[in-house]
Computed example of a mutant assay.
Amino acid sequence: MLCGIILLFFSCESTVKSQMTPIVYNTTATEELSPLQLEATPNYPVAAGQSVSLHCSALTMPASVTWSWQRLKNQTWEEVGTGRELTLTEPEQSGSYRCSAEALLSPKLKSSNHNVFIISMRATVGENLGIAAFVLSLLALIISLTVLGLGWQRLGDRLTASDTTVKGPEMQSKGDLPQTDDDGDVYINYTSTNQAYTDLDPTNVTGDNMYSDLS
């Protein structure tokens, strides 16, 4: 009887211990990092002041991943940022970029290269000098045309005044001359004693020195 009770006690104790044994899960199996994908928004050249956002992603990744960005400069990749996103706004930031990711139990992966173009809208020193030279040339041309126009105007006024001075008296003198249809001789009867005119016909001479031939 006593032996039965002891056996029953040990059997119950073993059952309780078996129920309290913890379950151990296999934690060595982790999700591996898949190839990286780099996306740019917008995916075209932009003007200075506009932003270009680069985003790095993967289809599968562990819980803990370290992200970083590199830029190609002088044939060398330089670290330029961390995180899954990188924002660029300046023309000096144009260039070739890539992202990389590294997990605890996965090898370090790198994305494909992506070229970013940010166009400068500010004029350079040479462009400013060119613009200034063009403006000065345009002003010089306008001044030259203005002076030339004034010179032609004054010359025209002088020519008009000269024509008026020459032609005016000439026309007036011609108007005072008697107009005759006969091109023959013209005789004028004259005398110092204020005698009356006589017939200008040479056949009707009344006396000596009573008329004169003006032809």
Score class of each variant (00 low, 15 high):
11 S>V: 09
205 V>Q: 11
40 A>G: 06
71 R>M: 14
31 E>W: 03
201 D>P: 00
7 L>S: 03
139 L>Y: 07
146 T>M: 10
15 T>F: 15
54 L>T: 04
56 C>N: 11
148 L>Y: 11
15 T>R: 04
205 V>L: 14
80 V>G: 10
177 L>M: 13
108 K>G: 00
113 N>R: 06
212 S>Q: 03
197 Y>Q: 05
152 W>F: 14
183 D>A: 10
143 I>A: 15
40 A>Q: 04
144 S>Y: 11
192 S>N: 05
22 P>A: 05
170 E>A: 12
33 L>Y: 05
98 R>T: 03
151 G>A: 12
67 W>D: 12
157 D>I: 10
167 K>Y: 02
63 A>Y: 04
99 C>I: 02
82 T>C: 04
152 W>K: 10
31 E>P: 01
141 L>E: 08
214 L>I: 13
21 T>F: 14
213 D>F: 00
169 P>N: 04
31 E>A: 07
187 Y>Q: 05
92 E>V: 09
44 Y>C: 04
3 C>R: 06
103 A>K: 00
181 D>W: 01
1 M>V: 08
158 R>H: 08
23 I>W: 02
180 T>A: 12
117 F>D: 00
24 V>F: 08
100 S>L: 14
50 Q>V: 13
109 L>I: 01
73 K>E: 12
203 T>C: 07
140 A>P: 09
174 K>F: 08
70 Q>D: 15
25 Y>S: 03
66 T>G: 05
105 L>T: 13
120 S>V: 09
126 G>S: 13
117 F>K: 00
103 A>N: 00
99 C>L: 09
37 Q>L: 11
